[in-house]
Design a protein around this nucleic acid. Structure first.
Lengths: 192, 192
DNA sequence: AATAAAACTGAGTGAGTACTCAGTTAATAG
DNA sequence: CTATTAACTGAGTACTCACTCAGTTTTATT
């Protein structure tokens, strides 16, 4: 039985608590109750652990949003489903998300890095999903006319910062979920 | 003549290009054309260099917003002045901002760290500035009724993500400034 | 010119860390 | 039972990097 998942679990918890750079592979092995060598049997480098986590979370995020949106039948409901899913995931997989919000190895996000393709692609897919919901809403009349790509980008931007503020210790609002929904609703609701 | 500014300049450029952790104090000294020892004559640790940069940028940001807001005479104009200043600073001090958007030493943002006070305080001041503009706007009728603190938080969140997306290589919109202003305007404009 | 203080050098050092590898144990298949 | 593969160990190793310090040069002061 491979204990690869144990390594990932330990890494996620440590990265979330202390950040990528402050966590050594030695510590990960210790927490997973394994020897350090086995880490490099499953993962080529320490960076590949991070990359694995990143892919897991992003994949689940994108698929989750897609599924949630599909069950709706107008643009605004699709956006609402997106927001709902986002906040559910934020609650249910908070450790993983915290882990991603902390310090990356800069090679992962750098636009000239081999890994960047991954991150950029995930965000592109996200922007496309949100964009298509906006377009749908503009057709069915549940969302007002506005530049689709820019608006999608700004919505994604708004949600993307939450974990950073969690770490700093701000954002202690009791009901951020519904405040955010209202905020986005005000942006998108058709002029009457 | 102290060449401390040269150290800061070199650090900013390198942190912006490669991130904090991927930059060694040796490289900083090399780029500043100084010996490595002098770095630790001016800065207690490598982290204190980052902290210095952070304070400079945040101080300029907060003061700049304050000054820009003061010249206005209603709430919405204050928010507009804030956005304008934000985008101007984004242009004029892009390297420093890039540097802050990359990987921090996690001790700086961690809510249990001695340095966290700084970052949290700066964001608190920012949230207060934005919040007071919103309140002013609600009184003078240029901004609709909405929960002040949450709305301020969400606006700050929206702007805070931009540099991250710059790094990833998204956000290549030709006119993000005015798209953002419209976006925020739609959130805040009074119901007619 | 003499003195004091500030700015700076450069050669360490020691601690820590990602990663390797030869060899062992456990699981699986024929 | 045997052979093969997969899972795992633990003791390295090579190397980097933040930081130190004794001593030198530059600047400012009287």
């Amino acid at each position: 039985m491979s204990r690869k998942p144990d390594i990932l679990k330990a890494a996620i918890e440590l990265f979330a608590a202390k950040g990528y750079h402050a966590t050594s592979t030695h510590e990960i092995a210790e927490r997973a109750e394994l020897s350090e060598g086995i880490i490099f049997y499953y993962f080529k480098t320490k960076e590949h652990i991070m990359l694995g986590i990143l892919e897991d979370v992003f994949e689940a995020y994108i698929i989750g949003i897609y599924d949630a949106m599909e069950k709706t039948d107008n643009g605004w409901d699709a956006i609402r489903a997106y927001l709902e899913f986002h906040f559910r995931m934020r609650r249910e997989r908070s450790t993983e998300i915290l882990c991603l919000a902390r310090d990356y190895p800069s090679t992962i996000t750098n636009s000239d890095s081999p890994y960047n393709g991954g991150v950029r692609l995930y965000f592109k897919r996200l922007l496309e999903l949100v964009g298509s919901a906006l377009r749908q809403g503009q057709e069915d009349g549940t969302i007002r006319d506005c530049p689709v790509e820019e608006t999608a980008f700004l919505i994604v931007c708004t949600l993307a910062s939450f974990p950073k503020f969690d770490i700093i210790g701000l954002a202690p609002y009791t009901d951020l979920d519904s405040a955010t929904e209202e905020f986005i609703h005000r942006v998108l609701s058709p002029l009457t």
